[in-house]
């Protein structure tokens, strides 16, 4: 599979997972938010799901950029600008590449993280999606540096990243929310997982499953 075919698979899986988990993501957001996180994300990713085939697949940057535009345009609340900026920064880093090395994958993901931090002003440990995303990228980087990574098409590394995200999302439970609407709840935010971090874990587990199947 080419890099754009791999990216297409990832985006399709991501969109399907978000649409399928709409209610679950809303439930996560009901604890300290207003329970619309699932619907917000869905309003962008259902467009990706329906129209992905028609997006420009000529290179990795073009495809990521189109997704970034759709997400930032369609998703309301703070999720649209934050998730949209992540895709747009990843697109910029990827450029017109059609093939991507393991190192470049990590650089693209790190650019997305920087975009999220710039747009939302958050850093690690403030009970946001970053608390699952960053450990996942760290695990992916370690996994891809292993000797067997090329032979299994990164399957083990991606599974390790997904597992790291799930563990890290669970670890947001005792954290104090410092960003967005949950921050106003102060102490009351302690004791429940962060909705965004948990969603990252769910999405990465789906991607890992789809990846294993496609590269078996």
């Amino acid at each position: 599979m080419t890099a754009t075919e791999d990216l297409d698979l990832i985006l399709k899986t991501m969109a399907n997972t978000i649409v399928a988990n709409t209610d679950y993501f809303c439930e996560l957001d009901q604890v300290v938010g207003d329970g619309d996180f699932g619907y917000s994300l869905r309003s962008g990713f259902e467009v990706v799901q329906a129209e992905l085939e028609t997006f420009d697949h000529s290179n990795v940057g073009a495809l990521l950029k189109k997704v970034g535009f759709v997400i930032s345009s369609k998703v309301g609340g703070s999720s649209g600008p934050i998730w949209g900026t992540a895709f747009l920064r990843a697109a910029k880093e990827a450029g017109e590449r059609i093939d991507i090395s393991h190192e470049e994958v990590i650089a693209i993901l790190r650019a997305a993280v920087t975009g999220i931090m710039d747009r939302g002003g958050a850093s690690l440990g403030e009970k946001t999606l970053l608390d699952a995303l960053v450990p996942a990228i760290d695990a992916l980087e370690t996994g891809l540096a292993q000797p067997g990574a090329a032979a299994d098409h990164g399957t083990a590394a991606i599974q390790a990243a997904a597992d790291a995200a799930v563990t890290a999302a669970e670890a947001t439970k005792p954290m104090l929310a410092m960003r967005g609407r949950a921050a106003y709840t102060g102490e009351r935010s302690i004791g429940s997982v962060d909705a965004g971090a948990t969603a990252v874990g769910v999405i990465l587990q789906s991607i890992s499953g789809a990846w294993r199947e496609a590269h078996a």
């Binding site: 207003d34 619309d36 619907y39 917000s40 309003s43 930032s72 345009s73 369609k74 998703v75 309301g76 609340g77 703070s78 649209g80 600008p81 949209g84």
Partner: peptide, 8 residues
């Protein structure tokens, strides 16, 4: 939507 800022 209810209690959510508008999309860009």
């Amino acid at each position: 939507d209810v209690f959510a800022g508008p999309p860009v």
